[in-house]
Design a binder for these strands. Sequence first.
DNA 1: ATAATTGTCTATAATATTTATCGTGTATAT
DNA 2: ATATACACGATAAATATTATAGACAATTAT
Lengths: 150, 150
Amino acid sequence: MITQKMKYALKALLVLGDEAAKDRPQALTIEEIAKRSGTPKRFLEHILLEVRNAGVIASIRGRSGGYSLLKRPAEISISELLRTIDGPIAPLPCLSRRAYQRCDDCTDEATCRIRKVFAEVFWSYLVIIDSLTLEDMLKSGADQVMGAAQ
Amino acid sequence: MITQKMKYALKALLVLGDEAAKDRPQALTIEEIAKRSGTPKRFLEHILLEVRNAGVIASIRGRSGGYSLLKRPAEISISELLRTIDGPIAPLPCLSRRAYQRCDDCTDEATCRIRKVFAEVFWSYLVIIDSLTLEDMLKSGADQVMGAAQ
DNA sequence: ATAATTGTCTATAATATTTATCGTGTATAT
DNA sequence: ATATACACGATAAATATTATAGACAATTAT
C-alpha cells in the first residue's frame, strides 16, 4: 500500500500537470493545489517541499508565488516520487540500491534464500514501475471527464 | 518493504520446509523453530498461529507436539503468506480484491487516474509474485551451504 | 491420575510510523 | 511598508509494528 501522503503527492502533481497543459499555465499556490486536490493544506506544504527538494517541481516565493512543474511530465518518474515520499521500494533493505542496509539478523547475504527469491521478483517489478511517469497518469484519463484531481 | 514479522514467517517456513525434506521429518516445537530461525519465541508463537489459521501449516498439541507443513512447498504461495501476515498487497485499497475498500476521499473510482495507472502496474506485479512458492525459496539455495535459516 | 510438555489465546507495553497542525521566519511583488 | 506566499522546525494524535507475559487447554509419559 502506498501511503496517504504519496496519494496527496500524486494528486498535487496531477493538478500541476493539468495546469502545465493549459494555454497560459500559472504557478499555483499551496492553497489552490490543496483545494483542487482535496488535501489538508498544512500537510501539503511539507509534501510539496519534499517534492521540490527532489527537483521535480519549482517554487516561487512571495506575492504571486506558487508551485509549478520543473520537468516535463514524461520525465517525472512515479517510482522516484515513491522513493522520495514513501521511502525505499525494495521489499528488503538489503535489496535497495539507494537505501541499502544490511538486515540486522543477517548472517550471510550471499546465501540468504529470502533475499535471493525476492531479488528476482523485485528486479522484474522495477522494470515495470521504473517506466511509469506522470505523463502516463495524466494521459490515462484523457478520454474522460474528471472530478477533482482524480 | 516487507515487515520483520513476514521475514520471521518466511524463515519459519524455510525451517519447516527443510525439515519436511528430511528422511524422517518431525513436527518441530515453537522453541526449536525459534532457535533455528533466530526469531523471538513468544513473537513466533503468534506468527505460527496466523500461518496455521491460514491453512498452511499443521499444529499438534501436547507432549511431542509441534508444527509441520500441511501442504507441499510448491503449493505454498508466498503472496498468500504476504497477505496473511502483512495484509493487502495492492498499492491502493480500491485495487485489492480480498480486502477491497473505497478510498475515503474518492469521488469516482472509474475515472481516478491514480487508480487506473496503479492498476496496470499491479496486475503485472501480481503475475510475478503470485507464481512464487515456498519451493522456489527452498530450492534457491540448494547449491550452497546455509547458515541458519538463510 | 498426575505431572510434564507444548500449543492457544487474550491482554498489555514499548517503539516507530503516519498524518497531520502550529508558530515563526523569509522572500517577493505591489 | 505591507500583504502575500513559501520555508522550516516543533509538536501532537492516531495507528501500526514488534514484541512480552500470563493463564488456559490439550496431549503424552509415567
